[in-house]
């Protein structure tokens, strides 16, 4: 069963194409991770699902309901936890939850009962009667999670749920999401944290520049990629000439699949090898050519490697690249009603 289906979504902000024909199926009961660097279109996708934005073209279905035809019914299905938490600072957390309950037309008894449950469950009792302006980032996020859950939605959507949070709040939210997943709720979350998606998601898609570039379970994606990752340095800081020499040397060794020079990290070399057995041989060859091994680390493929494979860039590098280009002020203006 499919909880959310996106079909060829297109969305532009002026000249900027945020989504370029994005298609995605999110199975019922999955904890679905949407991984991608900032600016890859994650938030736009989530906003379209939540009926906050209309796509320029494409189709959105939530629990079988067409979101463009019947947005109100879709809103009832969804609980949304936005990226920047918009709360009314002057109200207390409890008052905000009550307002939320009334906007979803819960009757008073149900509303108050559920609020009590969520306050206990999210450990908010101590401060829920304080004005929300005094809350820390973690408290705000928990409050927002509570308001997203208040009407017991079938689908919970979270945009970067733990960005900028302290470790305690983060692990609390992770634990909760895992619980909901176990209870069979459908959860869709976006993140640019690899470990978050890796730790939580039962299924995932990697987004880049407004399209999906890979999808599957985190395990599958890593397995498909295969091989082990080795990072090699012959000196703390090498140079271009030297690293190219080593690249030529290593690429000819049987069992070495790929050698990439990482200029950003002092011309270290990133290798993909078939298995560990290649390593002793690799060291031998280096010694023969008079190169010393300054440092060598070996790891299983990570989601970052999946991203690297698909785009030719590391997620972090892409992040830095985009960081200077985005005009958040303009984006805010665009998203203002």
């Amino acid at each position: 069963m499919t909880a959310i289906e996106l079909h060829k979504l297109v969305k532009s902000y002026g000249a900027v194409k945020a989504l370029k024909g994005l298609s995605l199926k999110i199975p019922k009961g999955s904890l679905y991770g949407l991984l991608g660097p900032n600016g890859s279109g994650k938030t736009t996708t989530l906003k379209i699902i939540c009926t906050l934005l209309a796509p320029d073209a494409g189709k959105v279905t939530v629990s079988g309901i067409d979101a463009l035809q019947d947005p109100r019914a879709v809103r009832q299905e969804i609980g949304y936890v936005a990226q920047e938490v918009a709360i009314d600072k002057i109200l207390t957390g409890l008052e905000l939850l009550e307002l939320q309950g009334d906007l979803y037309h819960l009757n008073k008894a149900t509303r108050d009962k559920r609020i009590q449950e969520l306050v206990d469950r999210l450990d908010m009792a101590e401060w829920i009667n304080r004005r929300s302006g005094t809350y820390s980032g973690g408290m705000k996020r928990r409050l927002d999670l509570a308001s997203g859950l208040l009407h017991e939605p079938k689908v919970l959507i979270l945009d970067e749920p733990t960005v900028g949070l302290d470790i305690e709040s983060r692990s609390k939210i992770w634990k909760l999401l895992k619980e909901f997943h176990k209870q069979g709720k459908t959860i869709l979350l976006s993140s640019h944290y690899l470990e978050e998606v890796d730790a939580l998601a039962s299924e995932m898609a990697i987004m880049d520049c407004g399209t999906v570039i890979a999808k599957g379970s985190p395990e599958e994606l890593k397995k498909e990629l295969g091989g082990d990752r080795v990072t090699l340095r012959v000196k703390e800081f090498s140079n271009e000439v030297e690293s190219e020499q080593i690249q030529k040397l290593l690429i000819n060794i049987h069992g070495v699949r790929q050698v990439v020079i990482n200029k950003a990290e002092g011309y270290s070399l990133n290798l993909v090898i078939d298995d560990e057995a290649v390593l002793p041989f690799l060291k031998q060859e280096l010694a023969k050519a008079d190169f010393q091994v300054f440092a060598m680390t070996q790891s299983r493929p990570s989601l970052d490697d999946v991203y690297l494979q698909a785009t030719g860039r590391r997620l972090m590098d892409r992040e830095l690249e985009v960081a200077g280009q985005r005009d958040f002020k303009q984006e805010n203006k665009n998203s203002m009603r």
Binding site: C50, T51, L52, R72, A73, R75, Q76, I78, Y80, A82, E84, A86, I87, D88, Q100, L103, Y104, H105, S335, M336, R337
Partner: peptide, 14 residues
Amino acid sequence: REFGFLNRLLIAPL
């Protein structure tokens, strides 16, 4: 509108 609280209202099935 500016602080995004309106979006929160618009997500609800008013």
